[in-house]
């Protein structure tokens, strides 16, 4: 009857592990909780000292604009992570869905708004399909979405025939290009997205269900939560957000390349994890995700601004991410919670 021992990662959160944090004082815990922000402020100061330009308004705008696409994608990556799954296909989804939308406008002569809806709709469907595969067919999300990623990347190459899509309508590029009083409108979307996510996670019943499912799916099931449904909604919402991110990237870049979005994949997964989202599910909050997104963007932009030769940018960037993750691991080791 009880012969089958649990394969859930519940042992990882055995009572002893939690009890230990009684040692760290509340202020230390608060500090640890938002260590990503401390790290962020530190890097901003360092980059600013290395180059005064870093502190200019135009650079700040640049950072926020760049952070918009990564931020949306980070949110999209967080939803599957919070329920204890992972989605590697969101960057691929972002690329192909934007191409589908753009081609609907350019080749099928759909109105711009309809084309954008078609693109985002396609992304949502892809997310929904991932969710179905992982719950109903019990496919392992890591491999299922890896396969999906390759399909979507290949699909993008196929429908673009290797060419870059350009010549968008003005309406299509409006969001990516418009400024109001010298400020681009893109970052507004970033903040709306994060506020929306924060509300969803903190204040809604669905947020509770997300955390419960990720925290202990077996317990959530017994407590009357339809775990599979929660996971499907998480993946669907993730696909929807990836579709929005895809439209913004295309609108901002005014181009869709045949490998659109690929460079974002690892950063979009890294950002929430750096910000404290657990790969085992159930842990993480919006502030952390935002911190992770801004940190990665600052590293990216900062290295360019201080004129690090391009051959070294990836290596140094990777190194800084490495340190951030190590610091986070120490934080978890000291018993910080979400």
């Amino acid at each position: 009857m009880n012969t089958k021992t649990s394969v859930m990662p519940t042992v990882a959160v055995a009572p002893g592990a939690v009890a230990k944090n009684a040692g760290a004082s509340p202020s230390v815990q608060l500090l640890l909780k938002y260590v990503v922000w401390i790290w962020l402020v530190g890097l901003v100061i360092v980059f600013g000292l290395l180059n005064k330009f870093f502190f200019t308004t135009s650079n700040l705008q640049n950072i926020l604009t760049q952070a918009t696409v990564l931020g949306l994608l980070g949110l999209a990556a967080s939803l599957p992570l919070l329920v204890g799954e992972i989605d590697l296909s969101i960057a691929g989804n972002m690329g192909i869905s934007s191409a589908i939308g753009a081609l609907a406008i350019l080749q099928l002569h759909m109105p711009t708004f309809l084309g954008v809806i078609v693109g985002v709709g396609a992304a949502t469907l892809i997310g929904f399909f991932n969710g179905l595969c992982i719950t109903r067919l019990r496919m392992v999300s890591l491999i299922e979405t890896l396969g999906m990623m390759i399909i979507l990347q290949g699909g993008l190459l196929a429908i673009t025939q290797g060419a870059t899509i350009t010549d968008f309508t003005d309406a299509y590029t409006w969001v990516g290009q418009t400024t109001v009083g010298g400020w681009p409108v893109m970052p507004l979307v970033l903040f709306v997205g994060f506020i929306g996510m924060a509300v969803l996670l903190r204040r809604t019943v669905f947020g509770r269900k997300l955390y419960a499912t990720g925290g202990n799916a077996a317990a959530a099931h017994v407590a009357g939560i339809r775990v599979n449904k929660v996971k499907i909604v998480a993946f669907t919402l993730s696909g929807f957000i990836a579709g929005i991110a895809g439209y913004f990237l295309a609108s901002w870049q005014m181009a869709i390349t045949s490998d659109q979005g690929e460079g974002f994949l690892l950063y979009s997964i890294a950002a929430p994890i750096i910000g404290g989202v657990s790969v085992f599910g159930g842990r993480g909050d919006t502030w952390g995700i935002l911190g992770g997104v801004l940190l990665l963007t600052v590293i990216h932009v900062g290295l360019a601004v201080v004129n690090v030769p391009s051959f070294y940018v990836d290596m140094i960037g990777g190194f800084l991410i490495f340190i951030a993750v190590a610091v986070d691991a120490i934080r978890v080791g000291m018993g910080g919670t979400r």
Binding site: N216, V222, R338
Partner: peptide, 21 residues
């Protein structure tokens, strides 16, 4: 531990989990 508590979540969240409506 297996399918009762959600160890990393708060007492309050655990208590109300089945009566969210």
């Amino acid at each position: 531990l297996r399918d009762g508590i959600i160890a990393i979540q708060s007492i309050a969240e655990n208590m109300t989990l089945s009566s969210l409506p």
